[in-house]
């Protein structure tokens, strides 16, 4: 069973359109959702959770249609961290614990308190006095404390310092050691995604440009740097994106479309994303 299956998902706003999105997150995997600000990542996540209405398409989460009445129960198995923590500012973590105890049937108070200690979060300090990093840590603790099978994280690691981000990535990695556990993680920090993701999905201006296994992506593409005159010998169908400067041309190419003579370098996921977004420009 796939953790998330999206087919033909569409959502239009005045100045933005999420266009015919198809995405599959296999169970037991971590998928990174990448895209510039306003690309449609948060909209996609809110559509997955049926927090906003879609115009068309079908979303199945943990085998349940998100438009069906059963999806409400299914949400018990989904831990969500949005781009902000969104708890009322006067609440303390102690209050949050009581609220969540009466929200999730499988709420694990001991687990929540463990995370609070691990993240060094004060239990009686009001949420408004927390720093952004502390707020996000609290949201992550809540998402992990009701025995979820799927984590959906929208920019959950942004605002955290590199040490804490690394600790969070370890926690997410541990979470997927159980083979039925999966994560959909949207982030601007591509290096984080490169560290832990099995799949990378790239949304650009509301369209899904690719969704592939990370290792396949890294093998499929290569980076070449050539003087302008030499670059003309590269078959145009091999070039997925290029950057022309006074010194020459840097390009992302499909390895199987060029001969070994060009000796392409291994790209980073960031290279693939940047060149794919820019295309021929």
């Amino acid at each position: 069973m796939d953790a998330i299956e999206i087919k033909g998902l569409c959502k239009s706003y005045k100045d933005f359109k999420l266009d015919n999105l198809d995405l599959v997150l296999p169970s037991g995997c971590i998928m990174g959702l990448v895209g510039e600000n306003g690309a449609g990542k948060s909209t996609t996540i809110r559509l997955i959770m049926d927090a906003i209405k879609s115009d068309a398409g079908k979303v199945t989460v943990l085998g349940v249609d998100n438009k069906s009445p059963e999806f409400r129960m299914c949400k018990e198995d989904i831990g969500v961290v949005l781009d902000e923590a969104y708890f009322p500012e006067v609440l303390t973590p102690k209050n949050v614990n009581s609220v969540m105890q009466n929200t999730y049937k499988k709420w694990d108070e001991a687990c929540f308190f463990d995370y609070m200690t691990r993240f060094s979060l004060p239990m009686t300090k009001p949420f408004k006095d927390y720093s952004r990093g502390m707020k996000m840590k609290l949201a992550i603790a809540v998402a992990l404390s009701h025995d979820p099978k799927l984590l959906i994280l929208d920019e959950a690691t942004s605002g955290l310092d590199p040490m804490v981000r690394d600790e969070m990535l370890d926690i997410f990695n541990d979470f997927t050691r159980v083979e039925t556990h999966s994560i959909l993680l949207s982030s601007h920090i591509v290096s984080d995604l490169e560290k832990i993701c099995d799949y990378i999905a790239f949304i650009h201006k509301g369209k899904l440009l690719f969704c592939e296994e990370k290792d396949v992506l890294l093998e499929k593409y290569g980076i070449i740097r050539l003087p302008k005159a030499e670059f003309e010998a590269v078959p145009p169908e091999a070039v997925k994106g290029k950057k022309v400067t006074n010194f020459g041309v840097e390009a992302l190419i499909l390895r199987d479309k060029v001969s070994g003579a060009f000796s392409p370098e291994r790209p980073s996921i960031e290279d693939i994303i940047l060149f794919t977004a820019k295309g021929g420009n």
Binding site: R46, I78, F87
Partner: peptide, 9 residues
């Protein structure tokens, strides 16, 4: 809060 509540059961 409504955004968060929308993701809860």
């Amino acid at each position: 809060w409504d955004k968060l509540a929308g993701t809860m059961p």
